[in-house]
Design a protein around this nucleic acid. Structure first.
Length: 254
DNA sequence: ATGGCCTAGCAACTAGGA
């Protein structure tokens, strides 16, 4: 099973930049999108169905903001939107599709970069989401949590750990949350197969950051440790540029 | 350097992003 995740930074803009050709080429079984920034009636979902996908959209209530989705070649047994939080569930941040042998989530963690208030919102999400996932694991043990976590885990995951030591996305509290999350029984599918530096999934639009590979690794495909032995391959795809993020995928033998 | 630059709402600018 090939699972791909992509923060598209506006699905309509990405569709204008050969998103469909990219998806056709990668031919993933499950695709997780974040930041679709649109309601499904604002674009033609038929173009995804023509690629063979069942489509499940979870937009935010606020137009043009956030929004996640899952596309899948197989029809899921069940699809769940939200995580049971009265604010975040209006913001299109969590959607899950349950398949035989695995449940796949597409998650867009809040950004904390727009000030202290947004950072507090981010911590609220981190705390709530951690507890939500662990309640969920009591009944769904085989989880794959894909998405834009908006956090670099370690120094190797950011091009300049020194000058970003006070930047949201690389704060000690956030990195400690990533430690706690992985230690609680999840595997970082990219890092476990690729220990080498200079692998990122997001670059600023400014200052020619992408061409100089001055990036951050903030998008992850995490799997429950019980699925670890099924991991065959993981990659990030920095050459495809429909967004300020790039896509990542993992292949699981399930 | 409290920027740089892009998407989107909505028709001149602002919100949000990391």
């Amino acid at each position: 099973m090939k699972i791909l995740t992509y923060n598209v930074n506006g699905i309509r803009a990405a569709l204008n930049k050969e998103l469909l050709e990219f998806l056709q080429r990668e031919d993933a079984d499950v695709v997780c999108f974040q930041e679709i920034k649109a309601n499904p009636d604002q674009f033609d979902e038929g173009v995804f169905k023509e690629l063979g996908y069942h489509c499940y959209w979870f937009p935010a209530e606020k137009k043009g903001y956030s929004g996640v989705a899952i596309l899948s070649k197989m029809e899921p047994k069940h699809v769940e939107t939200g995580c049971g939080h009265e604010v975040f569930d209006h913001e299109g941040r969590v959607i899950r599709a349950d398949f035989e042998g695995i449940s796949v989530m597409s998650v867009y963690f809040p950004s904390g970069s727009s000030g202290d208030h947004r950072q507090d919102v981010k911590y609220e999400f981190l705390n709530f989401f951690y507890d939500y996932v662990h309640r969920l694991r009591q009944s769904l043990n085989k989880l794959c949590i894909c998405g834009d976590y908006n956090i670099c885990h370690r120094e190797i995951d950011i091009h300049d750990p020194v000058s970003n030591k006070n930047s949201s996305g690389f704060l000690p509290e956030e990195r400690e949350w990533m430690n706690k999350f992985f230690d609680s029984g999840f595997v970082d599918t990219f890092r476990v197969l690729h220990p080498e530096p200079d692998n990122y999934t997001w670059w600023s639009f400014r200052a020619n950051a992408r061409a100089r590979n001055k990036g951050w690794r903030i998008d992850y495909i995490s799997i429950s440790d019980v699925l670890a032995d099924s991991l065959v391959e993981s990659r990030i795809l920095p050459d495809d540029k429909q967004s300020d993020h790039c896509a990542s995928y993992a292949i699981l033998d399930i």
